[in-house]
Amino acid sequence: MNISLLYCFDLFGTAIFAISGVLLAGRLKMDPFGVIVLASVTAIGGGSIRDMMLGATPVFWIVDNNYLWVIFLTCLATLLLVKQPKQLPWYILPVCDAIGLAVFVGIGVEKTMRLQDSMMIAVIMGVLTGCGGGIIRDILAREIPMVLRSEIYAIACIAGGIVHTTSLYFGISSQSSFLLGVVTTLSIRLAAIRWHLSLPTLHLKG
């Protein structure tokens, strides 16, 4: 994929995940510092872990401070536009999260494939990029991470990553493969939100 287009997608995903963090912080009545922290870990947490695991250091937001500016400006804009987050429709937070999730999985797969050629590792890093920040966000908010609950979340990431890497394997262009993966992840996640789809949970007797 064209590097500049990938960069735009990355900044877009950063803003979307930051919004997700701000909305959750607002629901939990956090102060401005808490809002920024929750937005930041949501937006760059997964990518930071990915870069450290791949040895792509310094991590992306240290090399390029635009990510931090996007987070800060997104926090400011969201706080100004959303005065009473509790009155927002229930689906706003999960839909924002789904969009950011799909974009970040694609970013994670694309960046990993540029650094090495293992499809399996690319899928894993895509899932980590998409879910890592949300896991940190939910832990800080004292909630069970969405990826560990019965919701179809990580499965959507895995499916999108597989479609992305498989498309590349069969010679489909990087840009088209990226979009196919993003659409796959987003479609599955939105379907799960719309129809309340979930995975079976483990119940142990004793």
Rank of each mutant, 00 (worst) to 15 (best):
G45N: 04
F33Q: 03
T42A: 14
G171M: 09
I152Q: 00
D64M: 12
I155V: 11
V103Q: 01
L115N: 02
I172W: 05
A56T: 11
V37R: 09
A191H: 00
F104W: 05
V183F: 14
V22N: 02
L168F: 04
L204N: 00
I124S: 11
Y153T: 11
R114S: 00
S118H: 08
V123L: 06
R189L: 11
Q84V: 12
L80D: 10
G161F: 05
G21I: 07
I158G: 10
S118Q: 09
W195T: 01
W195M: 02
N65T: 14
I49N: 04
E143G: 10
R149G: 15
S173Y: 15
V105E: 13
I152G: 03
V163F: 13
Y169A: 13
I16D: 08
I71Q: 07
P94V: 07
K83S: 15
I155T: 14
V22L: 00
I44S: 04
G134T: 01
Q87T: 11
L11M: 07
S40Y: 07
M113Y: 14
G130Q: 01
A15T: 03
L180T: 03
L5V: 09
A159V: 12
P32S: 00
S167K: 04
T74S: 12
M1Q: 06
V35C: 11
A154P: 02
H164V: 06
I121F: 12
G132C: 09
F104C: 09
I152S: 03
G160L: 01
S150Y: 13
S40W: 08
G130V: 06
Y169L: 14
G55A: 15
I71S: 10
I155Y: 00
I71H: 09
L93V: 01
I44N: 03
A141T: 05
A77E: 03
L23S: 02
G34L: 03
G161N: 10
A159Q: 02
V109N: 03
V182H: 06
L93P: 10
C75Y: 14
E151G: 04
D64H: 15
M30D: 09
V59G: 10
V82G: 08
L24R: 02
H196A: 08
Q87D: 15
K83C: 11
Q87N: 13
D10G: 00
L190A: 06
Q175W: 13
L76M: 15
L204G: 04
C8V: 06
T185Y: 00
L128E: 01
V127C: 14
A156E: 14
I135W: 05
P145I: 10
G171E: 14
L88W: 01
P145L: 13
L11G: 02
V22W: 05
P94W: 02
G34K: 07
H203T: 07
K205T: 03
Y67G: 06
T57R: 15
Y169K: 03
V70R: 04
V105H: 08
D97M: 08
W90D: 14
I44C: 04
T112K: 14
M113A: 07
G100W: 13
Q87M: 10
Q175D: 10
L190Q: 06
L101N: 08
G106Y: 02
I158H: 02
I36L: 15
I62M: 14
S177F: 11
D31T: 12
G45S: 08
P200W: 05
F104I: 04
T112W: 08
I49G: 07
T78W: 13
T166L: 15
S187Y: 12
V59A: 13
T165K: 08
T112N: 10
P32N: 00
A56Q: 12
F178G: 02
R27Y: 10
